[in-house]
Amino acid sequence: MSGLLLLLAVVAAEPPPAPTQASSFDEKVLSDADQREAEMLGYLDGVGFLGRENEATVEVAYGSKQIATTRLELAHAFPISGKLLHVVARVGAGMATDFHALGLHGFTAALGLRHITGKGHFFVEVGARFLGGWQGIHGDRPEAQTLALGATLTSGAADDARWLPLRSSGLQLYVDFLSRSKPMGYDHSGFFVAGFHYGGQATVVPPAVSTWLGSEPQFVGNVFIEAFLSFATRQGTPVRLTTGAHVDLSLSSIWPSNVPFPVVLDLFFEWHPAWVSWLSLRAFGGLAVSLGAFGDKIGQGGLRLVATF
């Protein structure tokens, strides 16, 4: 099935327009049909599309390790006049708790360049993400590391930069791609698209992870990929439901030898209400495990609310 989706996405995705005298990043006047498509499916493209220059994300998650995570991220896209380009600034912070060792972690700030094609079939965002040096409460104790790993596995994204207690700041480079097909289907039945969302981040300036053994400069990074199907309409009525699978793998070097490479495998279901076009609600859930400790897998799930306006 995933192979079929991949084939569909590859076949159906509209590549960025071939360069002409004008840059492919130049804004273009869309045809009416393309404009309708963009408006119908623009919920997939996030901040910077269709004039929506602000984004707020709130997510909560909980897992069988009895760890709860929550995270807030705000983003603003600054348009570059005449271009399909935005400079995007993001700030975020999160909190994880095992109900014993509360930790406030994950202050991040990012600055990137985001390009979305005119019809929204493709976007790419590249940038740098600053990891704030904040070791949280009890950051120099083993419980903080255990909590960080647990939060990574629970949160639905193996982005451990959000959760690690850091004694000094670091810098990551990140890249985020989305590639989707053109709408498929029929007017009388409905239209859907298939696509992939993938990317990752990696340190270029290693932060010093706080451990009880001392500060340890470490590589912090992860990669993810999502495959999705999004149903835009059904029998002419906007539906705007997306479902898919998300796989997220941490490559960070901090994790000990018995629990290396935390990986999250989630299914998700996302609703973008037509009557609140700037809102998106995702429910996700699945398994998370460290690749070296298959016997110790956990179940986790959560909700993510994204407002793009």
Binding site: P206, T211, L213, G214, S215, P217, Q218, S253, W255, P256
Partner: peptide, 23 residues
């Protein structure tokens, strides 16, 4: 001396494999 990371004697760390070998 600086705090020993135990599972590795190389910092910045190069990964879980490095730690597994060190362990």
């Amino acid at each position: 001396i600086a705090g020993c990371p135990v599972e590795t004697h190389t910092l910045p760390g190069v990964g879980p494999i490095d730690r597994a070998i060190g362990a």
